[in-house]
């Protein structure tokens, strides 16, 4: 009798703990991350090496920047298909300013960031002023942005970006670009949880009509966030310049889907309004980790895609449990 009572007590404690923890939206992706991390460590002896952990963070950094930007847009109930092209365009412009016009690194980085923000601003205008649905507006940016990259580069990589190594050099044991994405994850947390802009983003995503009736200037919020997201993407583009030491015209081709997948894995609902600000960074890490462990285990490349798809479907199912319905 007492024995069963004890185990019931344990179950109750766990249930209690879970109900307390599950208030935090970060918990589910964090559990997925920790679970996958432990599983990977058990599956491959090479997973925990410092080299592998370092490249995991390096590979996560650009994707995390895309996911952090993308997630803010998804939280408003919109979608952005332009991250891949925007990062490539920003990287290309930075490289051209640096190599062709001989400007110092700082100027070229600012030019790249301005380019990303400009693309985001145009996306925002298309959505708010031209009233084009974000899926279509940013699809246009995806196509036109890549076209501009190809025109600017002539399809050939721009070489000689050795000065971009400042991004890959290490401070306190981690490459700078890893610190950058950690800092931006913190900025997202503050922006979305501690500012009125963050509150407006969630309320637009929750119910845009209601948000507009309550006096929120939703168009201004959208314009701001699209611009900010474009700026985030540009940093990813600069990171890729540093990683390859060339501005590669096909950088980020297809990354918009990885950015959306990272957001979903991080617990952001595609319907908008629900999700943790830092979840997307975890999602980006999870996605990178899956690719990494499959290569470490020597799984056939064709099987890798199936496994990735299955993990995404399973994770998304787990994350949406408890919701009444999804759109």
């Amino acid at each position: 009798m007492g024995k069963t009572g004890g185990s019931e007590g344990l179950v109750d404690t766990i249930k209690n703990l879970w109900s307390k923890l599950s208030v935090y939206e970060e918990v589910k992706p964090l559990i997925a991350l920790i679970g996958l991390f432990i599983a990977s460590a058990l599956l491959s002896p090479y997973f925990l090496t410092s080299y592998n952990q370092r490249i995991l963070l390096l590979q996560t950094a650009p994707l995390a920047m895309l996911a952090l930007g993308e997630s803010m847009i998804i939280l408003m109930g919109s979608i952005d298909l332009s991250p891949g092209s925007t990062m490539a365009l920003a990287g290309t412009v930075a490289a051209i300013v640096h190599i062709s016009y001989g400007q110092p690194l700082s100027v070229s980085i600012l030019a790249g960031m301005a380019t990303g923000a400009a693309v985001g601003f145009i996306n925002g205008l298309l959505v708010t002023k031209a009233k084009i649905p974000s899926f279509v507006a940013t699809l246009a940016a995806l196509v036109a942005g890549r076209g501009m990259v190809l025109i600017l580069t002539g399809g050939q990589p721009i070489v000689g970006l050795t000065e971009f190594r400042v991004f890959t050099e290490a401070i306190i044991g981690l490459p700078n670009m890893v610190w950058i994405f950690i800092v931006f994850t913190g900025i997202n947390l503050l922006l979305l949880r501690r500012t009125s802009l963050g509150l407006k983003i969630y309320s637009i995503g929750g119910n845009e009509e209601a948000a507009r009736y309550s006096g929120i200037n939703a168009d201004l919020v959208k314009l701001t966030i699209f611009t900010l997201a474009g700026f985030y993407y540009s940093i990813a583009g600069l990171m890729m310049n540093a990683r390859l030491e060339v501005a590669y015209p096909w950088t980020g081709w297809g990354y918009e889907l990885d950015a959306i997948a990272s957001s979903v894995l991080g617990g952001i609902q595609l319907t908008g309004g629900i999700g943790s600000p830092i979840g997307p960074a975890m999602g980006a890490y999870i996605l990178t980790l899956i690719t990494n462990i499959l290569i470490l285990m020597g799984v056939s490349p064709y099987v890798q895609w199936v496994v990735k798809g299955a993990v995404l479907a399973v994770a998304a199912t787990a994350l949406t449990r408890g919701l009444k319905y999804v759109k």
């Binding site: 090479y46 997973f47 090496t49 390096l58 590979q59 096909w250 990494n292 290569i295 470490l296």
Partner: peptide, 13 residues
């Protein structure tokens, strides 16, 4: 870019 990331992971193992 894929050549880079794939090769990085291969070199880990």
């Amino acid at each position: 870019d894929e050549g880079l990331t794939k090769m990085e992971s291969i070199l880990a193992a």
